[in-house]
């Protein structure tokens, strides 16, 4: 069932000093796909996500989120953006205080939040613990749990597994996929890790401000040093044979493998 879509038409963004960061982007983003956004450093990935979250406004073209009756939705509320560093997103010393603050500022009621937090697999003793005393991996998970609890339709994650080891990266993905198995929400993440391309349904490839939606196989044909550096022969082989069932299988495997994992 399609509940919303985001339409981008000839979208462009130039900063006041004339620097054109994004140009000619026409895309349709749907809730049932998980999108991986790939491109070199400084190619405009974060800027693109800020546009989706309504923090920046395009200087050219249009971007809108429409529900099933084609009525525009408020993207500032419906699209959330989580940055790499979880520490800048916490405005209080504990998760409980921080959640209360965000819900207060968004004008929403907390209701069964604490029960849902436990459902997500957050140990109850972490809710009141000072965030500084937790590991980086846990702070990242707690920060993401806030985004999952806030009512929204699309989640943009800016390099969610940057600075994390492979095991913690799997825990992060397992955490997200288990929730996504319960309710469908849009997911876009940026990454520099080739193996993370395999868990996405579609790939948004960004190069010098232009974004194209490509399939996994299309990536192999792109003549670009950044992409070439990502593709070892083994990876190229997997991508050539990639299909949706592989992504689903991997997501299921990661969800299962990290379930109940108390780190």
């Amino acid at each position: 069932m399609r509940t919303w879509r985001i339409l981008l038409k000839n979208l462009g963004l130039a900063f006041t000093d004339g620097l054109e960061v994004l140009r000619d982007i026409s895309l349709e983003i749907l809730p049932d796909n998980i999108y991986a956004l790939v491109g070199p450093n400084g190619s405009g990935k974060t800027t693109f996500m800020k546009l989706l979250a309504g923090i920046l406004k395009p200087t050219r073209g249009s971007i809108e989120m429409l529900d099933e009756d084609e009525i525009p939705l408020n993207m500032r509320r419906e699209v959330l953006l989580s940055f790499q560093n979880p520490d800048i997103s916490f405005s209080h010393l504990t998760l409980r205080r921080d959640l209360m603050e965000v819900f207060n500022l968004r004008g929403e009621r907390l209701e069964d939040i604490w029960a849902r937090l436990a459902d997500l697999g957050i140990p109850p003793e972490y809710v009141d613990r000072e965030l500084d005393t937790l590991s980086y991996g846990w702070r990242k998970i707690l920060s993401l749990s806030e985004y999952l609890l806030l009512p929204s339709k699309l989640l943009c994650l800016d390099e969610p597994t940057a600075n994390l080891d492979l095991l913690w990266s799997m825990r992060i993905w397992g955490f997200l996929f288990r929730e996504r198995a319960k309710r469908v929400f849009g997911l876009i993440f940026s990454t520099h890790r080739p193996e993370e391309l395999l868990i996405a349904d579609r790939i948004l490839y960004i190069d010098r401000g232009r974004i194209k939606e490509v399939s996994h196989r299309d990536l192999l044909a792109i003549n670009n040093d950044y992409i070439k550096a990502m593709l070892t022969p083994q990876m190229a082989n997997i991508l050539a044979n990639w299909d949706t069932s592989l992504a689903e299988e991997l997501r299921y495997f990661i969800s299962e493998a990290t379930e109940g994992d108390k780190a």
Binding site: I55, R76, S89, S91, V102, R106, Y147
Partner: peptide, 17 residues
């Protein structure tokens, strides 16, 4: 600026507060 943006990105509409 980074912290301010990170807070806004949780869907807080500052202008309407």
């Amino acid at each position: 600026d980074r912290i301010y943006t990170a807070q806004l990105a949780k869907g807080i509409e500052l202008e309407r507060l």
